[in-house]
Write a protein that binds this DNA or RNA. Structure first.
Lengths: 369, 369
DNA sequence: GGCTCGACAGTAAGCGATTTCTATTGGAGG
DNA sequence: CCTCCAATAGAAATCGCTTACTGTCGAGCC
């Protein structure tokens, strides 16, 4: 290929004046060399005040905008971080994404975002795409699919990223295994589930319906594990009929609970896999003429805004989502700004706690299916 | 010029083997030239089957990932689109963003996203940042600030982008003026507002409270204009006390209406600037013991999921947000894939329509503040 | 006054692809 | 058999910017 000017034989330095404005144009206009323009722009090398202002004027008059690609190629720094979420709409992801975006922007970085729509193959492909872009860090958000093949493939990506001087950040998802170069930001999923289950037990409930969450997702596995652990700790047997996994949406919560209610499920409380499911469940309950918490208690997980918005307010487990996003970027970029690679293998856990609202009360002995 | 290997004097061809894997490494491993590797990868030039598989194997074994920056620089194509929103959490923006993201991804592009947090200066800066990245298109979402200085500055950006072969896409925001090289995707904001106002009037209301929306935002201006137009068309005078602009959040809807109720506002219906405000208003109403629509009618705007989730469901104006996002990308990239620049100046308007739910009824003559 | 040194500015070597041009070749056609 | 062409490979020129290296030129010091 060849742009501006001629090729091959005796090249006459011509100016085709077609493409966008380059640093060379600015240099010419300011009567200095490209190097000086670059230095003025980056302010990382002494430039005489007079020269500086000549350059600045040229930049302004030409409306010059540096080419980030050329800069990335030459300077070996991209100033972007990538984030892969399930869905941009889902508040769980949106809050984490916001944290990532804010932290990235506050560090002068741009944020590349991509959504998998729950397809794990797409997730792998997107990580590759972000790798191509040489993102300073790639943040993977949310539960992972429990599949050895998948884990292996993602491990390969983590290693490739690390070799290229980037980092794979696992945000709210389980480790890929020891030795895999990743950074992790997690929250105590299992602990939160155990805590809130225990809270329900403390209120007198012994028959608790666990509702929602895809079985294949690590998040579900962890919450369920916590739930079972709390039950076991109090010596309450686990009734398989009361474990009703499925999806994470409001829709699911509504429909499934409605069915269960119709079938006459025997429970005094519902532990929804997340607040969205809880909101749907609440709808089904209300529709069935059941009062919360008088007739049935209900809790959620995540403490999304919806938990505070429904009536009655949902007692739920607070997860500092936005903070997790910020932390992910901080951890990944730690050191990056100073010198070396991000410390691979660093990890941190943010705390969760129960938020008490009005959706839990003692079991109602009169309501029996 | 000269790369790796000998410089100036006779440096021995060394392999520093430090940085990431380059196309040259693949070429060496496969025993071919870099050009051949490039052609194999891009599949836009005949490559013998045998060679192809040698290259593919080398790529696989080395875990080679092309450098998007080098590619962008040489190939003059970036395969990314940028989008600037107010806030990633706000469903209004999130849905549009999802449309943009989906359409971009389906065209093999990555999506750069940035949030302004409602700061117009940041908006300008972000457009610059996206320009630096040479995004194929920059989508600006949501209402604009009505400020001549701002408009002038954004116009300059639109021109710079166009000159660089990109496009500024205005999604749901007013034109920057005739002649400014942008692409537009809009919806009939004013018409929707007029329609739903008329719907309320048709139900018998004459004293309608307009609640929420920042005055400085073009969106507010348009909705308010539609509201006034409908009122005028029916010969109903506009009572300034019934125009209560402010913000776009649920919080605002709740607090402001609560105050107004306390002050004994005289209205039989509330037209909330958007569904979020309406949701907040509904909360205030419920808390005040007022039934919707028996005591007071309520409508929103946008038809976000929340409109269907609250009880009673909100009658509102449906805006095809996700579709707008997709359309923005389609329009911007039209032609880009084929040959020339996107047709600057192209624009399209998506339709809106009223969605009837349960929040509107006839005025209640008994309820008087 | 001759030197050393610090401040600046310019030269030019890459960064890692893509894409002309330019070869090589193995056949097909004469 | 020899020529000519299609199919393939390789060489090399860029893309636009950053950053060692080199210079230059006065000022400060001995």
């Amino acid at each position: 290929m060849n742009r501006r000017g001629s090729t091959g034989n005796g090249t006459t330095r011509r100016r085709a004046r077609s493409g966008p404005i380059t640093i060379e144009d600015v240099a010419t206009k300011a009567g200095v060399s490209a190097a000086t323009v670059s230095r003025t722009l980056n302010g990382n090398y002494p430039v005489a005040a007079a020269t500086r202002s000549k350059v600045e004027r040229a930049v302004r008059e030409l409306g010059y905008v540096v080419n980030a690609h050329a800069r990335a190629l030459a300077g070996n720094t991209t100033r972007t971080v990538g984030i892969v979420v399930n869905d941009v709409i889902d508040p769980f992801f949106a809050y984490i994404a916001r944290g990532v975006e804010r932290e990235a922007t506050s560090r002068g970085r741009l944020c590349l975002i991509a959504a998998t729509q729950g397809d794990s193959r797409r997730e792998l492909a997107l990580v590759d795409l972000l790798h191509e872009q040489r993102a300073d860090a790639v943040v993977l958000v949310g539960g992972a699919y429990d599949d050895p093949t998948f884990t292996r493939q993602m491990t390969k990506r983590a290693e490739a990223l690390a070799a290229a001087g980037s980092v794979l950040v696992l945000c709210g998802r389980p480790s890929l295994g020891p030795g895999v170069p990743t950074v992790q930001v997690s929250y105590d999923n299992e602990g939160g589930a155990a805590a809130i289950t225990d809270y329900l037990i403390g209120a007198g409930h012994r028959r608790i319906l666990y509702l929602g969450g895809p079985t294949a997702l690590s998040t579900t596995a962890a919450r369920l594990a916590g739930h079972r652990r709390a039950l076991a700790a109090r010596g309450i047997p686990v009734d398989p009929d009361l474990i009703q996994t499925g999806e994470f949406g409001r829709r699911f919560g509504y429909h499934r609970l409605r069915e269960l209610l119709a079938e006459g499920v025997d429970a005094t409380a519902v532990f929804a896999a997340n607040d969205m499911v809880a909101a749907g469940a609440l709808e089904a309950l209300t529709e069935a003429g059941l009062r919360v918490p008088a007739d049935l208690s209900l809790v959620g997980y995540d403490d999304l805004p919806v938990a505070a918005e429904v009536a009655p307010g949902l007692t739920t487990v607070h997860v500092p989502l936005e903070e997790m996003g910020r932390e992910a970027v901080r951890l990944a970029l730690a050191g990056e700004d100073t010198d070396t690679n991000a410390a691979p293998g660093s990890s941190m856990t943010v705390g969760t706690h129960i938020v008490t609202r009005a959706s839990v009360g003692p079991p109602n002995p009169d309501r029996r299916p």
